[in-house]
């Protein structure tokens, strides 16, 4: 019984830590590539938490639904990352900068 509970806790806490780290990175960096990496860190954290919820009702064993959804989620996150990276390289080659223009930042 302990192993179920502690596994749940370990995965969940790790996931939460990753989410926190990732969000911090996403907010604090201006370099676009770093922000995309941070986004992927948050994504991994969320998937870990999601996976951990599979242990919700220990008597039933591992729940398969989160696993299916995580795989879908990873595919989605991968496509988003691919689009983002291609845009970043395009942006970098056009403007010669790896960050968004600062004057526009004040716009936000």
């Amino acid at each position: 019984m302990m192993t179920w509970a502690s596994g749940w806790l370990i995965y969940g806490l790790t996931g939460a830590t990753l989410i926190g780290l990732g969000l911090f990175g996403f907010a604090s960096h201006t370099n676009l590539l770093r922000r995309i990496l941070a986004f992927n860190v948050v994504g991994s954290g969320i998937f870990l938490v999601f996976g951990a919820t599979g242990f919700r009702v220990p008597e039933l064993g591992a729940d398969a639904v989160p696993q299916a959804l995580i795989i879908t989620g990873i595919v989605v996150a991968l496509s988003a990352t691919a689009l983002a990276v291609s845009l970043i390289t395009r942006h970098a080659s056009l403007s010669g900068s790896a960050t968004l223009p600062d004057d526009d930042r004040e716009d936000r």
Binding site: L32, L83, D104
Partner: peptide, 8 residues
């Protein structure tokens, strides 16, 4: 491209 990146 810049606008799209910010949007993304």
């Amino acid at each position: 491209i810049t606008a799209a990146l910010r949007y993304l």
